[in-house]
């Protein structure tokens, strides 16, 4: 189990404040937050390139707060992969074993299952600069896993991949994790990755973790507008009339995704301000009462005089 206890780091223009985080063994934990929220800094703190001002990092009961990076048993995969361009793929992968003086034969035995799992056999004799982004990413992950780390840190691992490769890689990553169960901390600003990959999820903003839970839990009970909009509940409205229809307490705000609506004759009237054809469906921007909302529908045949009647199928109540 990895525990961050009250980690605080004060820098000139930014600070991490009282970061508490618990990642269970074999868990895939995703830390989700916008650029500049301090995600990568938390990675650097766990990897050991930054020492926090306060707080403790405990891995399996071992306090590693002040240990040098080489003594931490942390596998670190950075956004730009950080492959050693002057070494072949095989030498990249066995680097951690070679510096530990593991014999060449033992090293090969250790990496064999990983190389097979990630399909890297063809690439072992190549230099990193001829690899594609996805291949580089796999080499970086295998290199980190080869040392059998207590935790694997993945810093925005999918951000520099092409969109189609990205989805495929995400699936592959999930499948491999389900099989091998390495404890993982993955930081990203992408809700899709969080929703698909995370066992548990933490949401970070301006150096503070503001909500932790399973994706569904957070999405049902977001603690703030920020959390709601960041996990895709794009529409946030504060309208007692609508609350009454939905049986929500007066004064509360509700949030829902654009797809969580349907056309209904006895629904709420929405004034349409604009439409955008999507690959599947139509994105409609408009207003209900005085709140701006966006919905995605399959057809627009029900529009009459620039208005449409909609029913909110699923929504969350913001918990603040």
């Amino acid at each position: 189990m990895i525990e961050l206890k009250n980690i605080t780091l004060r820098l000139k223009s930014f600070s991490l404040q009282n970061i508490d985080l618990k990642i269970n063994d074999n868990e895939y934990f995703v830390l989700l937050g916008p650029t500049g929220s301090g995600k990568s800094m938390i990675m650097d703190i766990i990897a050991g390139s930054i020492i926090p001002d306060e707080g403790r990092i405990i891995i399996n009961g071992r306090d590693i707060t002040y240990l040098p990076p080489e003594k931490r048993k942390v596998g670190y995969v950075t956004q730009d992969y950080s492959l050693f361009d002057h070494m072949k793929v095989i030498d990249n992968i066995t680097f951690g074993l070679r510096v530990r003086k593991v014999s060449e034969k033992d090293a090969m035995d250790i990496i064999k299952p990983l190389v097979d799992k990630f399909n890297l056999n063809e690439l072992l004799d190549k230099y990193p600069y001829v690899l594609s982004g996805g291949e580089k990413q796999k080499v970086a992950i295998v290199r980190a896993l080869a040392i059998n780390p207590d935790i694997l840190l993945l810093d925005e691992p999918l951000v520099s991949l092409d969109p189609n490769i990205r989805s495929r890689f995400m699936v592959e990553l999930k499948n491999i994790h389900e099989e091998m169960k390495f404890t993982t901390l993955h930081v990203t600003h992408s809700m899709d990755e969080a929703e698909y990959l995370a066992d548990h999820l933490g949401i970070i903003k301006s150096g503070r973790i503001i909500q932790v839970g399973k994706f569904d839990e957070i999405s049902r009970n977001p603690v703030s507008d920020f959390v709601a909009s960041f996990i895709g509940l794009e529409n946030i409205i504060s309208d007692d009339e609508i609350n009454k229809i939905l049986n929500v307490d007066k004064g509360k705000r509700i949030a829902f995704r654009p797809v969580d609506v349907e056309i209904s004759d006895n629904g709420i009237e929405m004034d349409i301000e604009g439409m955008q054809k999507l690959y599947s469906g139509i994105r409609i921007m408009g207003k209900v009462n005085n709140s701006k909302i966006t919905v995605i529908l399959n057809s627009v045949s029900e529009i009459k005089n620039g208005k449409i009647k909609i029913k909110i199928k699923r929504f969350s109540v913001i918990q603040d």
Binding site: A47, G48, S49, E70, V74, G75, T78, S82, A144, P149
Partner: peptide, 18 residues
């Protein structure tokens, strides 16, 4: 040379001199 390269090498177990 990105400093992260050195940190990654160290997390893999290399000493500062290595």
């Amino acid at each position: 040379l990105p400093p992260r390269l050195e940190i990654v090498a160290r997390t893999l177990g290399a000493s500062q001199f290595q």
